[in-house]
Design a protein around this nucleic acid. Structure first.
Lengths: 237, 237
DNA sequence: TTGACAAAGTGTATTTGATACACTAAACTT
DNA sequence: AAGTTTAGTGTATCAAATACACTTTGTCAA
């Protein structure tokens, strides 16, 4: 394809930049919210922990790049993945000009356990309250992702992405409590969840071997993440 | 600076991409929400209307690029500007691989009128309901910006960016009605606004020459855009 | 000067949703 | 059979959102 004047003017090599994607992959492990980090094996920040991610290729969308990197690093596909923010400070990468498009993703306990068994690489889960020193501006990215997650569980059903397909109401409540980092009232929580009509009683019970009354197992009616409160977040008038 | 192995491997020329910024600049004109568009004078989409924007330079942050482009195209600075979303479809630009980081900005009536007088270029305001055919995926970007704006006026004070420093409550209500595209109840609107403690009575009155009772002029207490509802959008439990 | 006009400005009752709070039920273990 | 552990349930109170109509105040024109 012959380049015309405009292309020459606007797309010369000087204005080309490197673009990466970075993914904050959340899960719940041992009653803590955790993110997956990988250990860097190159300069800069060699040996330091960083978010999984990598360069966007020429022939893929940015979303596809995020999914690809996630699959390469964690072997997980079919996750809930959402674009977060684009960080474009000129000196955020010591190698030169690198802009990163950040994403966050949620996987559930079951998937995680499959992953943990095959994990022989330099990837490791860290509770968000106990992060090591991180490469680049990745700590900022995680902080931003956590804020987004904390807001978003209040008006969408993303939280379900962290749970197995069938779950007890107490497990759902626990997930909310872990993410929001606060205790919730059991009766109010259940009342609210049931009146939202997003739960389906599977008819099954959870018998986890403990000496307690078995819990009803629920699944959610919508496979997709949906917004609650149709008329907008708050219509204040 | 000598490049080491990692830099060679990860930042080779093949993986460099062009990155642009595009800005959806909103204002209210003639009781309609309008966006500023510029006419393209180059291929591709020569002669077609597009969002103001341009390439991100090597030595500036993406935010700075958005501000710079906005200033170049509209002569407006000190605007409220917020990153929206990064569009990275590989074939969104026929010239090749161009990723765009979109922003939206709001300017007020007074600034706009200054701008309109000096406007001899190919820039023009279009009501969001009456957009022409647009270059690239810019219609998608505007739709996305509009959604964000409609949500965000419900829990922040961004709406004030569209108004002059001193304004009547009815003007504020009108701005909300235009953006949300629905009528609001006058008494409930005023009650809500006053109880939020974001308004300051200037003591002045608005006499616009009409044969009606003059309105009190208010200003807002916080110069910055602030979030309302401290405890999170909705804490549903 | 006064009457018509036009938008500004004001209050209350009802409904809805959020919150606070404590006991019984069911299964398992010893 | 008694003890342990988590599941599961209802109501009263408080706060916020909604629905709704008339009076006030200035300008303009007869």
């Amino acid at each position: 394809m012959k380049k015309n004047f405009d292309e020459q003017r606007t797309m010369n090599h000087e204005q080309m930049l490197a673009v990466t994607v970075d993914v904050v992959l959340f899960t719940i492990r041992e009653r803590k919210l955790a993110v997956l980090l990988v250990r860097r094996i190159n300069e800069p920040f060699d040996g330091m922990w960083a978010l999984p991610g990598g360069f966007v290729e020429k022939n893929e969308s940015v979303d596809e790049a995020a999914l690809r990197e996630l699959q390469e690093e964690t072997n997980v596909s079919r996750v809930y993945l959402e674009q977060l923010y684009t960080f474009g400070d000129p000196d955020r990468d010591p190698r030169g000009r690198v802009i990163t498009v950040s994403y966050y993703a949620l996987i559930n306990w079951e998937n995680f356990q499959l992953r943990a068994r095959t994990d022989t690489s330099e990837a490791k889960w860290f509770p968000v309250q106990e992060l090591p020193k991180l490469a680049f501006d990745h700590r900022d990215i995680i902080r931003y992702a956590l804020e987004r997650l904390q807001h978003k569980i209040n008006y969408t059903t993303i939280c379900f992405q962290l749970l197995p397909k069938k779950f007890a109401l107490s497990e759902l409540q626990q997930a909310y409590e872990i993410i929001l980092n606060q205790k919730l009232d059991k009766r109010n929580f259940r009342k609210k969840m049931i009146q939202l009509h997003i739960l389906k009683d599977t008819g099954e019970m959870k018998t986890d071997g403990g000496p307690q009354r078995p819990a009803k197992l629920y699944s959610f009616t919508d496979v997709r993440v949906v917004k609650l409160q149709e008329k907008g977040i708050i219509v204040p008038f």
